[in-house]
Nucleic acid binder design. Structure first.
Lengths: 219, 219
DNA sequence: GTGGGTTATAAGTGAAATACGTAAGTTATA
DNA sequence: TATAACTTACGTATTTCACTTATAACCCAC
């Protein structure tokens, strides 16, 4: 069985040495190399891309998220594990968005670090309990926002009006709407006028935006 | 110390009995009552709202999510714990969105159920490991989509064209745009035609949606 | 430095679409 | 049953669309 090849990026010598010390005794891992800056990191991994890249967020010349983005594109076989003292949701979200497969706080244990390395090496994601909690909080927050933003009050339109608005906001012109609903084009226009009046909208552009905001149509 | 008052909603007698059997021996809890439908549930909790409402998703006359919504508004002091055999992300998301404080699969253990009850009674959220994993997967997926959706490729428009599109998508009609930019209305029309041709858009509605998707204007 | 591509400007023209005020017939519902 | 709300419709004025043509400015390459 081949060993998991690790590359370490952290701007503190002591931290790198600490991580190495934690990993050295695991005989299914091998430390391929290390770097203290983004520049050094890219120079070295170009020679031999590792299986797992352990990244700090804050670095002298760049940050772990930028490195993650580039690595995800240029070395898709390399999986990124973020190891950071920063645990705020923005960093986590942006790391994941950039393509990180795992995120650990710096006060993690040796066992957790090893679990994380193995998990992401096997194609899974790994987030420590504390990071998971932060992500779940964010999930809950976003789920609730999902309800608050889109509609400030019920839609005060009739069934027919919503029907017209939906078709219009889907891109049909009045003639097509009148054909589909088998009514006069004038009626379609009137309905649209009523909608605009009711909602106090001044242009068809606002009408379309209203339809999107209120999920009458997809964007 | 007062006991945590529980109310059970599930359309299967056997399930309700099972849950009661699991909880009966905990002397810091008391089963206030139970219901097998939404209607019955609302009738009974109106008399004495519980601290924790344990809800099934599927019910004969409604569903747990609708009940959650109403309870969250009408009885804010009552916390909802969803206990469902359905573990797909949509149900979880919508439950949380509706105001549920916890979500457990039906194959949960007595210990986990008790932990969940105590957690949400204390104002925390509680999701079982399996549910948490589903939520985290979704978090990761959404984080990645966050980058993919907004732009599939760079905007192939000139500065002037973007300027025209921006004003149009803000709701100005051609005449107003021509006045603001101090150009002929024919020029505005020509620009708009060019934009439509370039982007292969068939209606002004699509034009507006394009502008929103590509963040040329706010929704 | 001349030709070619891109951009920004403008116009003609007929057809198509829309805006807006008005109004009649139909349901709900109080 | 009276009133409000909803759906339907038209006339006229305005606006936009679709397609074509045209000119000046600019940049870039050969």
């Amino acid at each position: 069985m081949s060993k998991i090849r690790i590359f370490l990026v952290d701007d503190h010598q002591l931290v790198r040495d600490g991580i190495k010390a934690l990993l050295i005794s695991s005989d299914d891992l091998i430390i391929l190399g290390e770097a203290s800056s983004g520049k050094e990191c890219f120079e070295k991994i170009a020679i031999e891309p590792p299986d797992v890249l352990i990244l700090d967020i804050s670095l002298p010349d760049t940050n772990g998220i930028e490195i993650t983005k580039r690595v995800s594109v240029d070395y898709p076989q390399t999986r990124v594990l973020i190891l950071s003292m920063y645990t705020n949701e923005d960093f986590i979200f942006n790391s994941v968005k950039a393509g990180a497969r795992g995120y650990l706080p710096k006060n993690t244990s040796r066992e957790e670090l090893l679990s994380a390395i193995h998990a992401i090496y096997n194609g899974d994601e790994f987030f420590s309990d504390s990071i998971s909690r932060i992500m779940l909080k964010s999930y809950v927050r976003k789920a609730k926002e999902d309800d608050l933003l889109p509609q400030r009050g019920p839609i005060p339109l009739t069934t027919r009006e919503i029907e017209i608005l939906k078709l219009f906001a889907e891109g049909y012109i009045n003639k097509e709407i009148s054909d589909q609903l088998d009514i006069s084009i004038r009626t379609v226009e009137t309905h649209k006028n009523h909608i605009m009046k009711k909602l106090e909208l001044k242009s068809t552009v606002e009408l379309i935006k209203y339809a999107i905001r209120n999920k009458i149509v997809e964007l």
